Computed example of a mutant assay.
Amino acid sequence: MSTDLKLGLNLGYWQRGPADATALVQAAERLGYDSVWTAEAYGSDAFTPLAWYGARTSRIKLGTSVAQISARTPAATAMTAMTLDHLTGGRLLLGIGASGPQVVEGWYGVPFARPLARTREYAEIMRRIWRREGPVTADGEHYPLPLPAQGRPGVTGLGKPLKLITRPLRPEIPLYLGAEGPRNVALAAEIADGWLPLFAFPEKIEQMYGPSLAAAGPDFDIAAMVLTLVTDDVRAALDGVKTMLTLYIGGMGARDRNFHADIIGRMGYADAAAEVQELYLSGRRDEAFAAVPDELADGISLVGPAGRIRERLEAWRKSPVTSLLVMGLGDEPSLRTVRDLVLG
């Protein structure tokens, strides 16, 4: 149980146009927010906006939520992370995730199979690179280094173990995993410094993930991404959350393999998730939206007037969550209101 929550700002994906959030990030830093996070899917990458904001701030931590492991080799991500961490004075929080088969195979053109094994190998290779204890070798199935020539047409066999040229500012950059399934959450608790849940229902976390979190150490950071809207119009705010849920449950995955729908099912809304998905995939988007339960939308978010959010925060304080990464705040007054509510 956590009574003292850290507070972060999650910006999500960068979009062209008026999406330079520098002023917002600088306001968050002034107001005492602990971190700011950026995301990637199949549009903007996570690291470039983070470097942009890092160059315009001095204290706030900089997190990726998440960098997709299929987008880059472990060495490429390790180099990017090391460089950004150096340039920003040791402020990087590296969140990585396996994404899903639609993006991995449809966008990156690589197999999605065995995401947990791939993630484990990926994390270990990055940590070997940052430690610089010697030339890096790895004999795993997914990221062997050097790449063996046997059975691989076109491979010369001339690869040699290499050691990172630049000495990292920190040999242990904090590593977070974006995870939804119980086994993936257990992996985060075992090998990472934190977990980035996309959907978290505070009253249900212990029931859903208690055994998975058993291996987590005392400093393990559960940094929940929470859609947060300060408004007197609770109905409109809940509808905003429901719009997001409609897309993720209905369209962010295949009919027979949607990790987001699965997590909603584990929260106790399996029938609703199945209905939303069926309606969405049938082109009946308005009906899919209507099928999202208000109770679900309210449970995973913080919406409404300040007093309502204050009351709802008690459930988060009693949960295992240690950081709230608020999404949806677009101006300094809203940032200040949430800061005062969370940090007191």
Rank of each mutant, 00 (worst) to 15 (best):
M1C: 08
L9F: 03
L9T: 01
L9R: 03
R16D: 04
P18I: 05
L24A: 05
Y33H: 03
W37A: 09
W37I: 03
T38G: 08
E40D: 12
D45W: 11
D45V: 09
P49N: 09
Y53Q: 09
R56L: 06
S58G: 12
S58P: 02
I60F: 12
L62G: 06
V66H: 01
A67P: 13
Q68I: 15
Q68V: 15
I69T: 13
A71N: 09
T73P: 10
P74R: 15
A75Q: 08
T80V: 15
T83S: 15
L84C: 14
L84Y: 14
D85I: 14
T88Y: 15
R91Y: 14
L93G: 04
G95W: 12
A98P: 12
A98Y: 05
V103P: 12
G109V: 07
P111F: 07
F112C: 09
F112E: 11
A117D: 04
R118P: 03
E121K: 00
E121T: 00
A123E: 01
E124T: 02
M126K: 01
I129C: 05
R131E: 07
V136F: 00
A138M: 06
G140C: 01
H142I: 00
L145A: 06
L145I: 10
P146I: 06
P146W: 03
G151C: 05
G154M: 02
T156K: 03
T156A: 07
T166G: 04
R167C: 00
P168N: 07
L169R: 14
R170M: 06
E172M: 08
P174M: 04
G178L: 07
L187H: 07
A189Q: 11
A192L: 15
A192K: 14
G194L: 15
P197K: 15
A200R: 14
K204Y: 13
Q207L: 15
Q207Y: 14
Y209Q: 12
Y209R: 14
Y209W: 15
L213R: 13
A214R: 14
F220V: 09
A223F: 02
A224E: 01
A224N: 02
A224K: 05
L227I: 12
T228A: 04
T228G: 06
L229R: 06
T231Q: 00
R235I: 00
D239A: 09
M244H: 08
L245M: 01
T246K: 00
L247A: 04
Y248K: 00
G250V: 07
G253Y: 11
D256V: 11
R257I: 08
N258C: 12
F259N: 08
F259C: 09
H260C: 10
H260K: 07
G265A: 13
G265C: 10
D271H: 10
A272T: 05
A272W: 02
A274S: 13
E275F: 00
L279A: 01
Y280G: 09
L281P: 00
R284I: 01
E287V: 00
F289R: 02
A290H: 02
V292C: 01
P293R: 04
D298E: 14
D298N: 11
V303P: 06
P305F: 03
R310V: 07
R312G: 08
A315G: 11
W316A: 08
W316G: 05
R317L: 10
P320T: 08
G328I: 11
G328V: 09
G330N: 10
G330V: 10
V338S: 02
V342E: 02
V342G: 11
L343G: 06
L343H: 08
